[in-house]
Design a protein around this nucleic acid. Sequence first.
DNA 1: ACCTATATAGTCATTCTCGACTAATCGATT
DNA 2: AATCGATTAGTCGAGAATGACTATATAGGT
Lengths: 210, 210
Amino acid sequence: MASKRKVSNPLALAVMALLYERPMHPYEMVTVMRERGKHETVRLRYSSLYSVVSAMEREGLISPRETMREGRRPERKIYEITDAGREEFLTWLRELLREPVKEYTQFAAGLSFLPGLPPEEAIALLEERVGHLEAETGEMRARIDYAREEYALPRLFVVESEHELMLREAELDWVRGLIEDMRSGELGSLAEWHSILAGRNEGGGDEPMA
Amino acid sequence: MASKRKVSNPLALAVMALLYERPMHPYEMVTVMRERGKHETVRLRYSSLYSVVSAMEREGLISPRETMREGRRPERKIYEITDAGREEFLTWLRELLREPVKEYTQFAAGLSFLPGLPPEEAIALLEERVGHLEAETGEMRARIDYAREEYALPRLFVVESEHELMLREAELDWVRGLIEDMRSGELGSLAEWHSILAGRNEGGGDEPMA
DNA sequence: ACCTATATAGTCATTCTCGACTAATCGATT
DNA sequence: AATCGATTAGTCGAGAATGACTATATAGGT
């Protein structure tokens, strides 16, 4: 059903996953998430973490176990997961795996307004993108191989990175094809495209460079 | 550089694109975006639109041209794009096309915590996902074909839908492979996976169903 | 003995987002 | 002539998310 969660930031899922293992204080969660590379899949900001954690406490998904203080450093508030938290973790996780949800990507937004640039420039920009994507996928692949070899990680623990790599590679392939199709006029003739732009630019203002 | 934009919600990009053509009031923007299917690529909510629009006015990207009132209906405030707005539109669009940015997807978050479920259940969930993805990609393809034929749209105007379809198809393919690899023990043996879970569940709480 | 960079552990004020709500008009239906 | 649902046009308040900032401890170099 994908019904509205009380705490919907995916960071909350990560928090529950960590507390499922053992109680921790928020700062430690950050450390562990970084060690395991989970911050590559779940957007991690200090400020968000603390706000998510307090929302989770409010909703009864986690509860403070003890508060420690060493010297004059700030307090460390150690949380543990509740039964409700364990249940929420499992239902949420199941839902995420079972049901595809629509994602709005930045690139798609850009593509939507592609006719806003002259075709020559659009092609040039997409070629730059291809360059970036080649570098990026190369690095991702290397990092995955390194992690697997160095720490002897079973693939189970890097599936999310393989997923990310797969998406980027698919994009790379597709953008290459798109450039081809733009060149060959497959998308609509370049002349036509130019005339759309001309219509828009009659009013003056700064012209996009061809 | 991807330096921080003054108004960063992609809706702002859509607003500038529309006002590049002609002045409009916000409600009309919604109508036009819906007609052109842009709400499929840019998350569109009334409340966000109005707040984005006023932020854009504050930042000088658009400016109110006139305010009309018919009878006792609410006012319609008609906006036009400014020179700064035109420039911002072009720089932003260029950046979106040129530079890949990291996107955090829900599915990736789910995958990160895959070891949190017993393998048999994980497989079953992913199989359900495959079913959903098959249906979804089928519908997307049909909608694209329909739009192209019915309205004789050049591909240029549906690239963003083709992009979305491509991503879903890549995902579908990949998930099928993942299920295979889980079954064959390619990801790490299922016994091992179970023992990770067992360790975690010692403390009690509700057990995930195998 | 002193300085600095980094790690530790967070708070706060502002901005952003969205669901829920308001309110008028119009056309069709009783 | 009264009512109902769809469309037009937008407001509001509550909660979420983030960038900027604070403050202490400690290891290492000089």
